[in-house]
Design a protein around this nucleic acid. Sequence first.
DNA 1: GCGTTAGATTGACGTTCGTTGAACTACTGA
DNA 2: TCAGTAGTTCAACGAACGTCAATCTAACGC
Lengths: 128, 128
Amino acid sequence: MTREPVAATEVFKALGDPIRWNIVQQMAQQEELACSVLEDTLPVSKPTISYHTKILTQAGLIEVRKRGRNYFYSLRREVLRSLMDEMWTLAPGPRLVSSQEQESRSEAPALKAAVGDDTPRSATLLTW
Amino acid sequence: MTREPVAATEVFKALGDPIRWNIVQQMAQQEELACSVLEDTLPVSKPTISYHTKILTQAGLIEVRKRGRNYFYSLRREVLRSLMDEMWTLAPGPRLVSSQEQESRSEAPALKAAVGDDTPRSATLLTW
DNA sequence: GCGTTAGATTGACGTTCGTTGAACTACTGA
DNA sequence: TCAGTAGTTCAACGAACGTCAATCTAACGC
């Protein structure tokens, strides 16, 4: 059941790219995401998408399922939670954000050219 | 009070390097950390340390205080928490790790050559 | 003043990363 | 069987990253 342990820094590095973060965000909403959707929503070529999904897979963040000639990706939320646990030991405390603040944040202005101007989801900005 | 908003991916990228992750871990324990300590504990030269602390500062993760000719760094935990909040919206759920599991994890075998063999803290490995 | 020390900056170097066109593989449907 | 499609792999490229020696700057002690 337990897989190869992955260094925390490798997961951080995987999340530290706008396109990959965008992919993870999309997958968090869809439960399972077709590769073709990524081709439509991301402003990069097919090989580039393949490159990024590979990095996410190696970091343990996503799981790949092949059905015929189509590929489907799904987010491995337990990995994200495991990383959050690790961060929590460094900065323990209750969750800060109220539900309406989450709402407003998802409508925050996009960081321009972070992943292209016509991207479905805007870049995530942190304020504190 | 609120500073320049920083993209989440920039913070992830800052955390995605073994040396910087090590620095953050040390600062989580010390409340305030002298630069000289980093020079003693990290297997890299002074300019390299300066380079990494600069990246952490730009990501908003640490704060610099100069006292005479000495520099002191401190962790900005609210930034880490803000990032955790963002991750939580993607993978909501309770914390997973029990206190004794945290204990055993901190004693986990080091990932060799992740940041040098004589590093005070071992590399963080994730299991799920 | 003047040498020393702590740490940042600069400049150079090799390595890794992100991107693409081209070629390839595996599946589909007729 | 064979053309078309979905997605990967390969090879190459420029850009960004991580490292260090050398240099610089500011504060210290005398």
